[in-house]
Amino acid sequence: MSSDGRYWPTLTRTGRRRVTAAVADVSRTERLLWLLVAVALVGDLLTTYYGLQMGLSESNPVARAAIETFGFSAMVGLKLFAVGVGLGCRRLLPDRHGLLVPAGLAVPWTGAVLVNLTLYAMVV
């Protein structure tokens, strides 16, 4: 075996890097949806944390058990796990269905932020 790239072409590829190439192939709409996922994720984490500090409780039983057992950092881990699963599933989908994964993450998390903010308005 030599190191000329014949046996390991993905490791010695010239030109665009793998990550850059993957992002370049994503449509503008999908990139905006992934940005919305990031914003919704942070918003959900912040509003959940603030709600817990106000004395509210987490309604998701899995997240509630994780928070009670491991603390709030478990919530961060659950969110990152969900994004990781979403990214893995996105690679398996054809491009025409590519918007489903970020939309499937962004919509419920955005809804959770709105519900949390509504609860704050009712409590205060």
Rank of each mutant, 00 (worst) to 15 (best):
N60E: 11
F70D: 10
M54R: 14
V42N: 08
S27D: 09
S57D: 13
F70A: 13
N60M: 08
A22K: 05
L33C: 01
Q53C: 05
V37D: 00
P61M: 08
Y49F: 14
V42T: 15
N60K: 08
T47W: 15
M54E: 10
T20Y: 03
L46A: 15
D25I: 00
D44E: 13
A63M: 09
G43Y: 11
L46W: 09
L56F: 13
S57I: 10
E68D: 15
G43K: 12
V26P: 00
F72E: 13
V42W: 03
N60R: 05
L45W: 12
E58D: 10
I67T: 13
Y50T: 10
D44A: 02
A38Q: 08
A22V: 12
A40L: 04
I67L: 11
V39I: 15
L32W: 14
D44R: 06
T69Q: 15
L46R: 08
A66K: 02
D25M: 02
A24F: 00
L46K: 02
E58G: 05
A21C: 04
L46E: 14
A63T: 07
A22P: 01
L46M: 11
V37S: 02
L41K: 01
N60V: 09
E68M: 03
G55A: 10
A63I: 08
L36F: 08
V23G: 00
M54W: 11
G43Q: 09
Y50P: 00
Y50L: 06
V39D: 04
M54T: 06
P61D: 06
G55C: 11
L33F: 00
E58K: 07
W34S: 03
Q53P: 00
L36R: 06
V42E: 06
L32R: 14
V26C: 02
E30M: 07
V26M: 15
F70T: 05
